[in-house]
Simulated assay, not measured.
Amino acid sequence: MPRNPPLAALILGAAGLIPFPGLSALVILGQSLFGVAPRPLLAAYGAVIASFLGGLRWGAAAASPEGRGADYAVSVVPSLIAWAALFAPGPWDLRALGALVLAWGLVDQDLPRRGLVPAWLGRLRLALSGVAGLALLAAGFLGAA
Rank of each mutant, 00 (worst) to 15 (best):
L41V: 12
W104R: 02
A103R: 01
A119P: 09
R57I: 09
L128Q: 02
A135I: 04
Y72R: 10
A96S: 14
A82Y: 01
S75M: 09
R57G: 00
L102V: 04
A15W: 10
P91N: 07
L23A: 06
A119Q: 13
L136V: 05
A103C: 13
R125Q: 06
Y72Q: 05
A60E: 01
P78R: 06
A139V: 04
A84G: 12
A62C: 12
D108N: 11
V107K: 00
L100C: 05
P118M: 08
A60K: 02
P91Y: 04
A15K: 06
S129V: 08
L126Y: 01
L134S: 11
I28Q: 08
G35I: 10
S79G: 15
P40G: 05
D71L: 08
G122T: 06
L86I: 02
V131D: 07
W58I: 00
W120G: 00
L116I: 05
F87C: 12
S24V: 03
R57Y: 07
D110R: 13
S24I: 00
S129P: 07
P89K: 10
R114C: 10
L111T: 03
R57C: 05
G13S: 00
V101C: 08
A96Q: 11
P40W: 02
L23T: 06
W120L: 04
L80E: 11
G54Y: 03
A82L: 03
S79A: 15
A139I: 09
L126P: 04
A25P: 05
A70C: 11
R114Q: 14
R125S: 09
L12E: 08
R123M: 11
D108L: 09
G122W: 01
A60N: 00
L42A: 07
P112N: 09
A43H: 08
L29C: 13
W120H: 08
V48G: 10
A50R: 02
R125F: 01
L33Y: 12
G35H: 10
L106E: 12
G59S: 11
V74C: 09
V107Y: 05
P21C: 07
L29A: 14
P40D: 01
G122K: 05
W92T: 11
A14E: 06
G55F: 05
L42W: 04
L136G: 01
G140E: 03
L142M: 14
L111F: 02
A62P: 07
Y45T: 12
G67V: 06
E66Q: 15
V27M: 07
A43I: 09
P112V: 01
V76I: 15
I28G: 05
L53I: 05
V101Q: 09
G130E: 04
S24M: 01
A15F: 12
W120K: 00
L100M: 08
L86N: 03
W83K: 12
V117C: 02
A138E: 06
P21W: 02
I81D: 07
A50Q: 01
L102F: 02
S51G: 14
A85D: 02
V48T: 14
A99F: 15
A70F: 15
V74Y: 09
R68W: 12
A73R: 13
R114H: 13
R95L: 15
L26A: 14
F87K: 12
L111C: 06
G133T: 07
L94Q: 03
P112W: 03
G35A: 10
Q109P: 07
W104C: 02
P38E: 01
L12N: 10
P91R: 08
L124Y: 08
E66I: 12
G13T: 09
A43L: 11
G55M: 03
Q109L: 13
D93A: 13
P78W: 07
